[in-house]
Design a protein around this nucleic acid. Structure first.
Ligand SMILES: [Zn+2]
Ligand SMILES: [Zn+2]
Ligand SMILES: [Zn+2]
Ligand SMILES: [Zn+2]
Lengths: 132, 132
DNA sequence: TTATAAATGTTATATTATTACATACTGTTA
DNA sequence: TAACAGTATGTAATAATATAACATTTATAA
């Protein structure tokens, strides 16, 4: 529940919920959670989510349409994200691996083109699920 | 319009449309396109899309909710995909780079975990857009 | 042929996301 | 202070994306 300077009221409420969640949250599940706090409409949620993504405080897991808090002590590099996703229990964690991020940030395609941003999602079975 | 053995009628119709398109297509835009061919309902489109993805004939661009034909002479490795996306004109192309795919397929995270599948999306400006 | 899996057709509905417009707050500068 | 710009909020309506449920048909193969 750590107070983040410079987030607006709605942004703070929604960040806290995502940050305290052990799993990625979907927009409408967030909406349901914050209705008691006076946030009533989808758009209020989506606006806060957009801003938080832009700030790098949260990331969107594209394959799941869900959001998790940044786990890299708030990476401003929302431009270079990598996640590990368990296909059984849907647990998601952010991968923080210097070699990987260097490799991808420096990646140049066949045409010599470089990219300023990437998103990588790995899928498999987490330890827990594998041992079942 | 190359005939693909072993695709069903609906799958073939929808594959052809995607394959002939120069840009990623969205499900409802596909639906609109095939209504004259008797495919009237979203579910018919989604079912064909699911199957085509499973077969590796098309891929879903997760960040865009859109589909493109596989550009790697039909990769059966729908399990290891990488794309280049222009943030200006939305042109998408599939990246086929042996070093990259080897690197990612062999990637092991801090916990020693390996993954059986990944999807990578690079964002930037394509040549055309950069020179503008 | 009989059984099984895969594909189709149809209706309704659930889920995810945006448009449009009005208002309020925050910080800066004339 | 007043005027302004930029950001954030509130609200209603609607658009866009995707799935559930159920009935039927077609393909494949034992
Ligand atoms: Zn992060
Ligand atoms: Zn798991
Ligand atoms: Zn491919
Ligand atoms: Zn471009």
């Amino acid at each position: 529940m750590q107070k983040q300077q410079n987030l607006s009221k709605n942004q703070q409420i929604i960040f806290d919920i995502i940050h305290n969640s052990s799993e990625p949250l979907k927009a409408y599940s967030i909406l349901f959670n914050v209705q008691k706090k006076g946030i009533k409409a989808p758009l209020q949620v989506y606006r806060a989510l957009d801003k938080l993504v832009e700030l790098g405080k949260i990331h969107k897991i594209e394959s799941r349409n869900a959001f998790i808090a940044c786990q890299n002590s708030s990476c401003q590099i929302s431009k270079a994200t990598a996640f590990s996703i368990c296909e059984s229990c849907e647990q998601v964690s952010e991968i923080s691996n210097t070699k990987l991020s260097k490799y991808l940030s420096n990646f140049t395609d066949e045409a010599g083109m470089k990219y300023n941003k990437y998103n990588l999602e790995f899928f498999g079975l987490c330890k827990k699920c594998k041992s079942k």
